[in-house]
Design a protein around this nucleic acid. Structure first.
Lengths: 272, 272
DNA sequence: GATCACAGTTTCAAATATGGAACAGCAGCG
DNA sequence: CGCTGCTGTTCCATATTTGAAACTGTGATC
């Protein structure tokens, strides 16, 4: 599911990798898991799973569903550098921009960053929109199958694209999903020229999206911002205004990012 | 730093535990760490640390600061069941309540849940307050040294308190911090009677807090809600109104929690 | 320029975690 | 009722990870 980095792990730490894989099994639709499921899905010996689960529980990363032997994520998850990610420059600086975007449009807005062949939701705002956002912080979406993903890719040279999707499956979600890197690249050319992208119920049915790129200090797109709305955006009378607002939010975010990232080196050299 | 669970791990998975400890070294004031620091602080062999760090990088949990060999948390952190925690009942349901509280008071507000001898910030709202909240989601605060913590404890029987703090150090942050369980218990009696707690620059200098308990379906306090303000709250002319609003938010959150948790068992039994 | 301290990497024997096998407890089913 | 399949747990030999030692490179200090 999650993008694999390079192919070979160099030096293995199986205990660690497996424990992490267990935690990664949880998502918005999967809030509790029992050990046998883990063993089956990860292809691990039962004994090992019980040990891992015990260790994770001991660390507070898993909590036993009362009574039973199923587990859900524990609060200690939030101690895993998340506090750090939450204060991540772009995420923190992005907040006001997203808030304003949502306020002005009355729509839910999201900021995503690309991570391999996924984009990850790192910040969102809901404003006073009647419909809550469908995306949670931390949600991952396939980069090739969403406008948010495509906006994150528009500055990537073709050879890097090839490399990125080498051996990656490009499952089709709808008929419009590109199934080859070439098809994707063709879409990206258009996307780049346009400077924004619109999906009529592209990834999720009934939810449409208008997205614009977010660039870092090097001027290359590293993520995207969007608003989500019900129904077909192109039929919305305020469509052009909407696009304009999203694009503006994108450039505002890019500016924050450019400004900030230069100082990301060693904000607080630990005083040994 | 983080609360240890039970004393003995039963069955060890050193690789996992150590990897997790590395990730836990990051916090709001510690955004990047170099391997030698890790080795020193965790008391691990250098070789081992390099291997662990490599494994974590491979998993996308750490990112190499460009050029150097220091690391910061990677976006894959957000795949560790965090999406699940983000949609955690109380956290999700708490949002509107916090938003309203911040809107009405113009102050930053926070929702914390108790986890061992810490409380963890699981949700926050800033409203249009001129000063941003000092607390990040995921931040842990010592339960005995903060009003948020004390509000989370007010329903705990003395013997459980003793057990909880058995072998836990109760460092003093200010002169008012209770240094023994007995002293804490005495404060809690008063806190419980009052139904809220106020700190004049208690934990952090210059920042004051008004907190109220949040109870689960069993009627016992499991967390707390607060607003933070600059200066001394007791001198604020709207003090009584503020307290009232915070307490109301607390009971509103308690209601959501009571309502929701009953269904937390197996929301989506995986269709193996 | 020589010396020292530290960062980063590789090797390999030794210590350790791992997982197969075996057992008990339960539920469903013929 | 006994059989079968699944879960949870314990034990122990073995295969694996681990970490001391050794080596290189770099930068500070004398």
């Amino acid at each position: 599911m999650t993008a694999e980095r390079k192919s070979e792990p160099a030096y293995p730490v199986p205990g660690l990798e497996r424990g992490i894989r267990i935690l990664q099994m949880f998502n918005a639709g999967r809030r509790s898991i029992a050990p046998p499921e883990i063993a089956r899905e990860l292809g691990l010996p039962r004994t090992t799973v019980y040990r891992l689960v015990q260790a994770l529980e001991h660390l507070g990363l898993l909590e036993r569903l009362e009574g039973g032997s199923s587990f859900r994520p524990g609060l200690a998850i939030l101690s895993l550098g998340f506090e750090c990610l939450a204060s991540l420059d772009i995420s923190e600086l992005g907040r006001p921009v997203l808030d304003e975007l949502s306020d002005q449009t009355g729509l839910a807005s999201h900021l995503v960053l690309r991570d391999g062949v996924d984009v990850v939701v790192v910040q969102k705002a809901q404003g006073k929109s009647p419909f809550a956002s469908a995306l949670q912080i931390g949600t991952r979406l396939p980069v090739h199958g969403t406008v948010l993903g495509r906006m994150s890719l528009i500055d990537m040279p073709k050879d890097e694209l090839d490399q990125l999707f080498d051996n990656q499956d490009m499952s089709a979600f709808t008929e419009q999903t590109p199934r080859t890197v070439d098809a994707l690249a063709a879409m990206l050319v258009l996307d780049a020229k346009r400077g924004y992208a619109v999906s009529d119920s592209f990834f999720e049915q009934g939810i449409s999206t208008i997205a614009a790129p977010v660039r870092d200090q090097s001027g290359l797109s590293v993520g995207a911002v969007n608003v989500t709305l019900r129904g077909a955006p192109s039929s919305d009378p305020a469509f052009d205004a909407l696009v304009d607002q999203v694009v503006k939010a994108g450039t505002a975010l890019s500016r924050s990012l450019r400004y900030q990232r230069a100082f990301t080196r060693e904000p607080m050299p630990h005083a040994g």
